[in-house]
């Protein structure tokens, strides 16, 4: 029999604004650089997490998004993410330094799944991870992978969605998935919420 799961919370970050469950909770001028926006969001959330400043843009976005999404998580919360540009921002930084002195701290961030490591450390999640890449959001693979993890008790809950940062822009859309709730977790719903302005 088909078991259903539910979307119980969501977070969206775009155009220098953070939305929790579709409600704007923080906003700065769109003219502000992404680094400045992230710094102000860090202060707004009162994060006091020194490691944050060492992270690349993708990881900073991931830490802010998961902090907004929920206050605390069970350690068997899985992470199922997708984006388009992998770790492009850090890749270009590393490439620029090839002839000079490549930075080991920057090199670590040239993998998209590092953000799942940072999120796991911050929220102490010792669970399943999968990072997918696609030109466009593929909700069906996110849903099918997440459902498989939850149905087979590989994880009790999951944070899943889209976490993109490239040389020009960024877009974050993460969801919290549980066995109980009201909004049924499905690919069409996920896609609709992803597109929703």
């Amino acid at each position: 029999m088909r078991k259903e799961f539910y979307i119980t919370a969501s977070v969206k970050i775009k155009n220098n604004e953070i939305f929790k469950n579709d409600r704007s909770i923080f906003k700065v001028n769109r003219g502000l650089s992404i680094q400045d926006f992230l710094k102000e969001a860090y202060q707004f959330l009162d994060l006091s997490y020194a490691k944050f400043h060492k992270m690349d843009v993708l990881c900073k976005l991931g830490i802010i998004a998961t902090t907004v999404l929920k206050e605390d998580y069970s350690s068997d919360t899985a992470l199922v993410f997708q984006n388009k540009s992998s770790s492009e921002v850090s890749d270009f930084q590393h490439q620029e330094k090839l002839n000079d002195f490549p930075s080991p701290a920057n090199f670590v961030y040239t993998l998209p799944n590092i953000v799942m490591g940072e999120i796991s450390i911050k929220h102490q999640l010792q669970s399943e991870n999968a990072f997918f890449i696609a030109e466009e959001f593929q909700p069906q693979i996110i849903v099918s992978h997440t459902e498989s993890l939850l149905k087979n008790n590989k994880a009790s809950t999951t944070i899943c969605g889209w976490l993109e940062a490239n040389l020009n822009d960024y877009y974050v859309f993460l969801n919290y998935i549980e066995p109980q709730g009201e909004v049924v977790f499905s690919a069409p719903t996920l896609l609709e919420n992803y597109i929703h302005e």
Partner: peptide, 10 residues
């Protein structure tokens, strides 16, 4: 299965 260490990124 996969599992994250939740310890260090490198």
């Amino acid at each position: 299965a996969t599992a994250n260490d939740a310890n260090h990124i490198s």
